[in-house]
Design a protein around this nucleic acid. Structure first.
Lengths: 115, 115
DNA sequence: CGCATATTCAACCAACTGGTTGACATTCCT
DNA sequence: AGGAATGTCAACCAGTTGGTTGAATATGCG
């Protein structure tokens, strides 16, 4: 898991993958369960998970038939630090973070995210 | 500039574009001067700048012959907040989040000096 | 005016992405 | 053993990306 800034940012640049990460924030999940809310094939989700895993953003552990997916938030650290360098967090943006948390926890199905 | 998470993260997922942003951290620059350190055509840099502009990460203002590029760090805000949501969800510890941010900001590696 | 400078546009290309489908390998359950 | 469930693999496809080159468009200068 080299997890360069390239791979991390590009993994994050897809709404399906960000939704998957948000789901894994709640709990570890099996691949099939991850795929369930999405209207695409299991193979497509499997590829998305491979991208996330390659970026180090999740880990996968096979147990019997089932492959469990676990969020690895540490992989966001380097990217986060890079972004902090631009100075926009000077005011400690706790308000925005709190709003984010409320929205995230109240509505875990932010799957309907659209542009 | 709509600047969705998609466009912001995908704009950041390229080392040339991240390098351009870092350069603009120092000062506003003309397109030709942005292109100078890179070993690729001016047209390629022009495209990269269009991507950054479309993501809202820079603004461009034409003055005479010269188009000036200016960093717009606010565009990173939404993405940064999104990322902050990971890693400190256990117990929703806002104090921990604050300490985390302090630590990030104190990290010398991101203070190459600004402005 | 005529030329250099600054930047974009258009066409093209190879490589990558995100999706599909069908076949395949494992593992669990009777 | 047989069958369903869990995932991945391979081939394929359309669309996007990141780069090139050469022409085009302004703009400034003498």
């Amino acid at each position: 898991m080299a997890a360069s800034l390239d791979t991390v940012f590009s993994a994050l640049a897809d709404p399906t993958r960000r939704a998957i990460l948000a789901m894994l924030l709640e709990d570890d999940m099996a691949v099939t369960d991850v795929a369930e809310p999405f209207e695409m094939s299991l193979a497509a989700i499997s590829k998305h998970l491979a991208v996330l895993s390659n970026a180090g953003l999740i880990s996968q552990e096979r147990r019997g038939r089932v492959k469990w997916c676990k969020l690895e938030p540490d992989a966001l650290r380097e990217a986060s630090v890079w972004m902090q360098g631009f100075g926009m967090m000077d005011g400690l943006d706790l308000d925005a973070f709190e709003r984010f948390l409320d929205a995230e926890l109240a509505d875990p199905s932010l799957l309907e995210e659209k542009e």
